[in-house]
Write a protein that binds this DNA or RNA. Sequence first.
DNA 1: CACTGTGAATACCTTCACAGCA
DNA 2: TGCTGTGAAGGTATTCACAGTG
Lengths: 221, 221
Amino acid sequence: MSAAAATRRGVPEASVARLPGYLRALTALAADGTLSVSSEELASAAGVSSAMLRKDLSHLGSYGVRGVGYDVDRLSSEIAAALGLTQDWPVAIVGMGNLGRALAAYRGFAERGFRVIALLDRDERVVGEVVAGTRVRSTADLPALVEDDGLAIGVIATPPEGAQEACDELVDAGVRSVLNFAPVVLSVPDEVVVRKVDLSTELQILAFHGQRLAVAEAVAP
Amino acid sequence: MSAAAATRRGVPEASVARLPGYLRALTALAADGTLSVSSEELASAAGVSSAMLRKDLSHLGSYGVRGVGYDVDRLSSEIAAALGLTQDWPVAIVGMGNLGRALAAYRGFAERGFRVIALLDRDERVVGEVVAGTRVRSTADLPALVEDDGLAIGVIATPPEGAQEACDELVDAGVRSVLNFAPVVLSVPDEVVVRKVDLSTELQILAFHGQRLAVAEAVAP
DNA sequence: CACTGTGAATACCTTCACAGCA
DNA sequence: TGCTGTGAAGGTATTCACAGTG
């Protein structure tokens, strides 16, 4: 079964979310010169159980060798293909506040093959400024970016008030994948995929666990 | 049943992760002067189904009124209490690179009641620098921060190579909650809770969905 | 009477345990 | 023999649908 076929049949969302972790672990192994790896070793490097790793990989196809393990390069390619990383996914960052500027300067995008092709802001006073070596453009340029440069992913780093508007502009221009850093619920058509990164939500979840621990200790110190 | 009792019995992790969203929606409603809200309205504001909202809230206790809805203030308090937000959770950010500086300048922490009490770096050349109005301190100060200032949450914003070391220093000093921005799997003792925020993982998941969409359109345009 | 709270049904995810193969 | 790939079992999360109630 090809990766594309597996994709059409549907890899469970939970598996998809772990594939990047496997890919990262494989990249580290390849850098160390490791050629072959068992599910046990790879799972431990990625922080999951070996059974889960094997089940996840089985959704992509069977790329392992019984009694031996997985070829590091081969498996890397297959996972990259399943994730769609063989093509490029031009990214635009919308909102040049603190967070937007930090994201613009962040090297992690390029390292994993995502090209940031535009920095955008709706405020005309910010447009034209140079951030991380790139001139900030107007959100009005979005349709052209999609049309001419194949813009595929929009990162929303605006304040909460401007997030829905930024999102609408992205969607109207034809962007179908959005990474949202603003602490709001975005409404989008069904075909658009939104993922959310929210720092204060994460801290609140940590607070919950911190409290739970404190309560447990008070009961049984 | 009190919130503390519910906590001990265990609120499902998936529910906990949604509570911050409910709290945010309730805060917005309160700011609008809304006094009472139905599960339908609140769920829609938080981007979930009403059945899921009611099930989630049922894990905390029954704070609604049948035939009417929920009192906005009351429910806010109960959720805040369940999340442990009635006490404060001092935060330290470790790693003053691009991301660390952006996080230091980010106002979202303070707005949701998390006080950033220290900015840390292990590099002596960075220590002493002033970032976002605060003097950067050495990670060697960690034990004192926990002891004297009740430091409870550590945010790791170091490069990947330094993340495990930063984590170990936090844990050794007594921090039990860690928010990790570095793209590595951290190993910690059982009692420490780690949550991960990884931008390139999120982009890779978006790439997967973008590709899936493209394949679907090629098959049935 | 409208809305909550919840058992029952369903869907999804993870773990187990072993058959099957190099 | 040693490891993968996978059915079956066990858990967890979500949705349904309605009894219960202010």
